[in-house]
Design a protein around this nucleic acid. Structure first.
Length: 619
DNA sequence: GCCGTTTTCGGCCCGACTGTTTTCAGTCG
């Protein structure tokens, strides 16, 4: 993704925060927030767009387009500078503290001159918050606690960590007789690459027993909030878990609501409002005429515009809404399943991984939602290791596990000699090939492919000469070192690897490790072009520490006609299960099965792997 | 400030929980 988009997105987000802190009109802050996301996620490089082009981006109008143009012309946005001069950066930082939002942050600054997290800590220690309106002893305690949490590294965890915890909590709650349904929702269900806190949803007529069960789990270290329908706890590992319990009839609406994203929900609720419906976690409801937003229209059609007149009779028999829950007016329309809820507001069901307000609402409305790739579509794994190099399981076990998964094909791709610590030799590689061919006889329904993961050296060269490479069924090539080359060098390096007629897949293309190593600085657009031109696939590495390429890259890359391989890079049998994170990421990138080479039948895959080379055609 | 298979003006998602306050603002998701 082009960097300028992220720069401008961050700047617009900062402006939104500053507007909120200074108490500007709430809708203004919101609109800049929406624009920030639209710009950051836009598929074109915004630095190349003029004002008219910028206005094509959703939520960008005259005013914001002018600010973006100003930014690329002068390197700054005057209006942002004006607010920056008024509000120290530290005040914005204060809003990162849980339970401290923009209003209170501004009050701390105005009334006590607090302009950083450290200032706040000092003020707390000195008792200088006493007497400040809205800051009682509990609030002081919460702020101290919040600062401690903030200082504990970021707070987001990778998908596998979140999933493991979620499955444990869901299993514990599901075992209760009072629990009718239970699942995880939120960013985990959407398969975001990291998860901040866990959203667990349950259906029950006896919510209290479920809440009690959650707070009683041994992994709970602290109860943050405890109400009638919602309980929040923190685990011993520091993760926040929110449990919401809804009546069983509300399951679909609640699941839709708690899956998010927030931006997606805002859109679906707006669509409901335009149809004089109200969507909440309890269901989709009619709005009595007296409460309708579109009062003007109501007046025009002769309905009562306001006042206490009786609600218009619906043509259908009135069914008393039995649900508990706050909506006291309006009839329940639907709530049992997500499908019903979407259908009633005129949309097909949208896969959770697409629910980010990145165009899925429009696509759903136009009937152009992608038929995203699923785990069942995957016919094989094309990047895996054994204990011949740095894997921990022997090839026999890895292959047996692959057969168990029902794969049609499976590639063993151990490291090549240039990754010196792996001590690979030509002889060892050829011996492995023999063993693999022998092993293949045991698995008549599984085609075993012999491959390798090559190392792309600083010049873009790989480990072996062409004649040796020609002996492999598949070659993955990856960057494993020299991450700090210049952008030009790194780009050239990857493009050269693509141009190698024996390189089929670029493994973990940005080489990032989530939370540990930044992605390499490479012109991905150039790499996408090279891949499309040369018939080289880009990997969607499913390892939860990598997820590389990520969803945003995929959204950009697919526009170039690139093909992808969703691979686990498994170094152990258990890692083969990481596939779901790779598939989730692929879905978030709107990839279909057709985009992913390892969903293809073997024949088609083999043709792709020949990469147009001569002399490899087999009878 | 943006936006319109109802609108070029008049709206802008909705509810739970907490803490502090006596009826609600702020925060969060």
């Amino acid at each position: 993704m082009a960097r300028p988009n992220e720069q401008v997105g961050a700047l617009l987000q900062e402006y939104a925060d500053l507007v909120a802190i200074t108490g500007g009109a709430p809708y203004r802050a919101r609109v800049y927030e929406k624009a920030a996301r639209s710009v950051a996620g836009h598929h074109l490089d915004v630095s190349t767009l003029d004002a008219a082009g910028l206005r094509e981006i959703p939520n960008v109008g005259d005013s914001i387009a002018a600010k973006v143009v100003e930014y690329f012309r002068t390197g700054r946005i005057e209006e942002v500078e004006r607010l920056r001069a008024r509000i120290p950066a530290g005040v914005r930082e204060l809003t990162q503290i849980p339970t401290l939002g923009p209003r209170k942050a501004m009050m701390l600054y105005d009334e006590r001159g607090i302009a950083s997290v450290q200032d706040l800590l000092d003020a707390l220690d000195a008792g200088r918050l006493r007497g400040l309106k809205g800051f009682g002893p509990r609030t002081e305690e919460n702020l101290r606690h919040g600062i401690t949490l903030l200082r504990q590294a970021g707070g987001r965890v990778t998908l596998d960590v979140a999933m493991e915890l979620a499955e444990e909590v869901v299993a514990a709650l599901s075992a209760l007789p009072q629990c009718e349904r239970c699942t995880y929702a939120g960013s985990l269900r959407r398969m975001r690459e990291t998860v901040g806190d866990l959203d667990i949803l349950a259906a029950s007529t006896k919510p209290r027993s479920l809440m009690k069960a959650l707070t009683g789990l041994s992994l709970v270290s602290e109860v943050i909030a405890h109400g009638d329908t919602k309980t929040s706890v923190r685990t011993t590992a520091g993760m926040q878990v929110d449990l919401r319990v809804v009546p069983p009839e509300s399951w679909g609406a609640a699941l839709q609501y708690f899956t998010g994203s927030k931006a997606h929900n805002v859109r679906t609720r707006e669509i409901a409002v335009r149809q004089d419906l109200k969507l909440s976690e309890y269901g989709l409801f009619t709005v009595p005429p007296a409460q309708r937003r579109h009062r003007r229209k109501a007046t025009l059609t002769g309905e009562p515009a306001s006042g206490e007149g009786p609600p218009a009779e619906s043509t259908e028999p009135t069914e008393p809404a039995e649900e508990s829950g706050p909506p006291e007016a309006g009839e329940l329309v639907v709530s049992k399943s997500e499908q019903e809820v979407y259908a009633r507001i005129g949309l097909p069901w949208i896969p959770p991984t697409l629910r980010e307000d990145r165009g899925e609402i429009e696509a759903a409305r136009d009937g152009t939602l992608p038929d995203v790739v699923t785990e069942q579509d995957i016919r094989g794994d094309l990047h895996t290791h054994t204990d011949l190099t740095d894997g921990v399981a022997p090839m026999t076990e890895m292959v047996a596990a692959a057969a168990e998964r029902g794969y049609d094909y499976y590639a063993v791709t151990d490291h090549a000699p240039n990754l010196y610590m792996q001590r690979m030799t030509d002889e060892k590689m050829l011996a492995q090939r023999e063993q693999l061919h022998a092993l293949a006889k045991r698995y008549p329904h599984l085609t075993l492919l012999h491959g390798t993961e090559l190392n792309i050296d600083p010049d873009g060269e790989v480990d072996w000469p062409a004649d040796f490479l020609a002996g492999f069924d598949i070659c993955v090539a990856s960057v494993h070192s020299h991450f700090n080359q210049t952008r030009a060098q790194l780009t050239r390096r990857l493009v050269r690897a693509c141009e190698n007629p024996h390189v089929n897949v670029i493994g973990h293309p940005t080489a990032r490790l989530i939370g540990h190593r930044q992605p390499i600085d490479v012109d991905l657009e150039a790499v996408y072009e090279a891949c499309a031109d040369t018939g080289t696939a880009l990997e969607v590495n499913a390892s939860p520490d990598r997820l590389d390429l990520n969803d945003e890259h995929l959204l950009a890359a697919r526009r170039h006609g690139v093909k992808f391989a969703v691979d686990t890079d498994a170094h152990a049998v258990a890692h083969l299960d990481y596939l779901r994170y790779g598939v989730g990421t692929a879905q978030r990138g709107w990839l279909t099965a057709g985009d992913v080479i390892n969903t293809w039948p073997l024949r088609r895959l083999r043709t792709f792997l020949r990469k147009g080379r001569k002399g490899r055609e087999k009878p």
